[in-house]
Amino acid sequence: MKQVALHADNGNGDRRISARIPFLLQCVIVLAAFANTAAYATGTHHKINPRTGIETWQARGHGVFLSLTQMAPDQAEAFFLARGFDRKSAEKYAAACVFGTIFRNESVPSPVSCNLADWRIVTPQGERKLKLKEDWERQWKARGVSESARIAFRWSQFPTKQRFALGDWNQGMTTYALPRGGRFNLKFKWTVKGVTHEGVLSGVRCAANNGSR
């Protein structure tokens, strides 16, 4: 596409033809070319909080942004104990490889739809689905977790299905059911106007206790 645009008028092979393209148009063409490249190369950006050792993985492309930040097991456990969970239930959740997750529609004019049921955890053992908020909620009800604790749980989790208008975003917890320090890639999907896009967060690692250090 980029080549077609640059050489559209190049009927006689004259290399001076490029000079006929207005400078502004040249900027637009180059910008469009790089924008396309960026869109398909949703590389993973990894950073470590120097104070806590907590690690974050981020990807940006196609106008959306995804970020996964480790939540240490003791941190997750303390959060739910403070919300009224019994210790066994809080421990169970905290041991499930929890991440603080942010998804944002940064610049897509149309609504962006996400369904976590379509996302996949990729490990050397293969691909599998995430354990979703609804799966947990069924367990909490069966275990007799109090209603007020379940309300806090509900709103603290990343919703399974959500639509993001331009500028909308959400921050919530997601779980990956891997042991402490376990590594995985996350294949994430989102849909705009019926077209599904896919990105990968690579080399994500579950927190160890008290941060990953």
Binding site: A19, Q26, C27
Partner: peptide, 28 residues
Amino acid sequence: ACFPASDAPLTTVLARLLLACLIAFTLL
């Protein structure tokens, strides 16, 4: 009138493209 001179030498064209790239990168 919007078009630059048609007989610009190759170095000028390349310089313009380089400048366009720099502007594009800055914007991105």
